[in-house]
Amino acid sequence: MDTCLFVDVHIVQTVPPANLNRDDQGNPKEAYFGGVRRARVSSQAWKRATRTAFAQQAPEQDHATRTKRIVGELARRLAGRTGLESEQSARLAAKLLEPLGIKEGKKAGDTAYLLFFGYRQLEDIVDLVADDVADLVALTDEQLVVAMRNLPVARKLQSGHPVDVALFGRMVADIPSLNVDAAVQVAHALSTHAVELEFDYYTAVDDENLADETGAGMIGTIGFNSATLYRYATVGLHQLVANLADTEAALNAVETFVQHFARSIPSGHQNSFAHRTLPSLVAVVVRDDQPVNLVSAYENPVVARQEGIAETSVLRLAAEYERAVRQWGDTPVHAAVCHTFAPGGEVAERLGAAFGAQQTFPELIAGLRATLVELVKRAG
């Protein structure tokens, strides 16, 4: 696919008291932006939440995992397919991966860094030796190294990527041939307004406490804040097509990403705060020039007024989008919005003028798919 197409996703979402993403002190992450302290949720946290969400709905063979235990996972699959004992399968797995030059970790069987790969890719590696395991286990270590040297193990990890790897990429610093350029960029979510860190002081009662004993069984504190967040991500459809080598699969992946990025939320202290909410607004913008993050709408922090922070935040977003389009003259090829504000009101009218008529989320997804199909057809 020669034409560059970017799918920008803009989300405004209000989260109640929560600790979605902890820093090294156990408190919610923060950032200074526009001269004030903001709530922040790292891009890594929301990417993981998104990956976890769509992995729950995909068949197991299409799952990906990020782990230091690729040798153990490969050994498990070898044993399951061939009936080898664990010691023999572990030896074969280690020798299969040895020619790649992956550095060993401090713990036996671990790699020095996390590797991101698909279960189906491991099954493809097992295919290389499954019919010959009886002969291979009889070889000495030196003979086994020679036998494995010319097997296309690296090629199996360079192709057939699962959606997770194709979207979020893979970097192996000392083995560039295994790198996969990410098709998705995710910004750190920022509150549209200033926040203050607060603390929940809690006690836990011992249910078996005797009547003559006083005090709590446990005392502690949890840092939290509450915020209306601006979230942004962009998907490069052209890079996704290159990673998956399949246009239809890439279109499916865009749809999957937008759905689960919008619906997912990091799970930090979830049982303590039950913080799951849905966005007040999801806008998608398809561009053929470059991605555009609209966080500058909030450089001047939103201040709470009668109409509410979320309402003011989406009005700011619409104004920033229209200003960017007008001043730079690079009209997007598609824009659509799903929001929860009352139809016919000022907010709905302003959003409609900027992004188009209000749609349900399924309608937004279907319209995005139809637009991308048409654009790909024209480009092809």
Rank of each mutant, 00 (worst) to 15 (best):
T52L: 11
L190N: 01
Q306D: 12
R350D: 07
K103I: 04
H334K: 13
L144Q: 10
D330Y: 09
A366Q: 10
R66M: 06
Y113P: 03
A187Q: 14
P59V: 13
A64G: 13
F168W: 08
H63W: 15
N19F: 02
D135I: 09
F116C: 04
H334A: 14
V41M: 05
L372R: 01
L74P: 09
L317H: 05
N243S: 12
Q158R: 07
T67H: 01
F257E: 00
Q306T: 12
A253Q: 03
V195Q: 07
P301A: 11
Q306M: 13
V146G: 08
S272K: 10
L251F: 09
L190R: 09
C338I: 03
F224L: 14
Y113S: 14
T228H: 06
G223V: 09
T52A: 11
S43C: 11
Q88S: 11
V129R: 02
P16F: 01
A262Y: 00
F117W: 13
F273H: 01
A297V: 10
H275A: 15
R22F: 01
S264I: 08
L315F: 01
L315C: 11
F6E: 00
Q56E: 15
G329D: 06
D135F: 12
D62K: 15
R38Y: 07
V258M: 01
F117K: 06
H63L: 13
Q121Y: 07
V133R: 06
H63F: 10
L84S: 08
A274L: 14
V9C: 04
A134D: 15
L100E: 00
A182D: 02
L139F: 03
G367L: 00
D174Q: 08
G109S: 06
E248K: 12
D141T: 09
P176I: 04
T247S: 13
W328F: 15
E248I: 07
V282I: 14
Q13R: 15
A182E: 03
S86W: 11
E213V: 15
Q239I: 03
Q88P: 02
G236P: 05
G308E: 10
P16I: 12
Y201F: 15
P16S: 14
P266G: 07
P59E: 08
H10C: 04
L114T: 04
K103L: 14
A283V: 02
